[in-house]
Design a protein around this nucleic acid. Structure first.
Lengths: 146, 146
DNA sequence: CCTATGCCTTGATGTACATCAAGAAATGAC
DNA sequence: GTCATTTCTTGATGTACATCAAGGCATAGG
């Protein structure tokens, strides 16, 4: 139905049935991102033109109302901000489920390089869901490898 | 600025500065939910009339554009669905950062009781970010205590 | 019937991270 | 400057969860 890397910018409104969207990590393990029961809107919260990171398929036989993201944009002002927001939440959840503390930190540094110098590291640790001690060791590790 | 339990249904658009929204768990530890640098919209994604679960305050001196959620609703159709969605993502992230596998499972059962019987437990485990084995042990634990 | 295949469980062991404790380094108050 | 406070680091130990391996129990197909 939808596979990682597709640029299928669809939005699925579930009329009946049950969808799931999920990632598959490098070890081949699935991480379900969301179940989509009746009346849920299932989509990859990435920008319409970018490749998807999620797989979407049906767990039960389902009836769907399919729209394109572009259509939705017309109906909803400032949808770009919403996409950004939802997208970052999504990334966050996926990171929390499937990445190590080190990976989450590296991702954070890449994504929000301007935040790092502006907050105490313990706040970054908190954002990443780890302790300041763990973050300290992660950074120690990373600086050695350079 | 905003404290947990307030029904301060405000939306903060950050013009300059830096906000953070965060939870404090039962051990008194803070879990930052989001940083709000320039041009970000910071709010608790709960319904306008419900008490907030997040604290919001400023890390740097900040200039904010404050609106009420009600105002935003008028400008954006189907905002209710959006609130539900954002709210569930937020809960999810908070759970992932601060709760044990057991707590996450209990929360899931309460929140989506209708999902459980409809999917294999291994999918629930995946949704919770744990292995099927771990979920099995958690359920084992819980059934003993009844 | 027998044999797959997928799901769930249980046990043994490993590991990433937390917790606790202490000290170093930076920051600010006076 | 001194002292206090906060931040960051380092080490020792604990624990929640993962991983690996095996077996039981279904349901489906021959």
């Amino acid at each position: 139905m939808q596979r990682k890397g597709d640029t299928n910018s669809k939005v699925y409104l579930v009329e009946s049935g049950l969808l799931r969207s999920y990632t598959i990590d490098e070890k081949g393990k699935e991480h379900i991102y969301m179940f989509g029961p009746e009346n849920w809107l299932v989509t990859d919260n990435c920008k319409p033109e970018t490749p998807c990171q999620l797989f979407i398929d049906a767990i039960e036989d389902s009836i769907l109302n399919v729209a394109s993201k572009e259509e939705m944009v017309k109906e909803t002002p400032d949808f770009n901000a919403l996409f950004r927001r939802l997208n970052s939440m999504q990334n966050r959840i996926v990171m929390l489920m499937s990445s190590s503390a080190k990976e989450r930190y590296e991702h954070f540094v890449e994504t929000y390089p301007n935040i790092i110098p502006r907050v105490p590291l313990k706040m970054v640790a908190s954002y990443l869901g780890i302790t300041p001690e763990a973050l300290s060791r992660v950074r120690n590790e990373l600086s050695k490898n350079k």
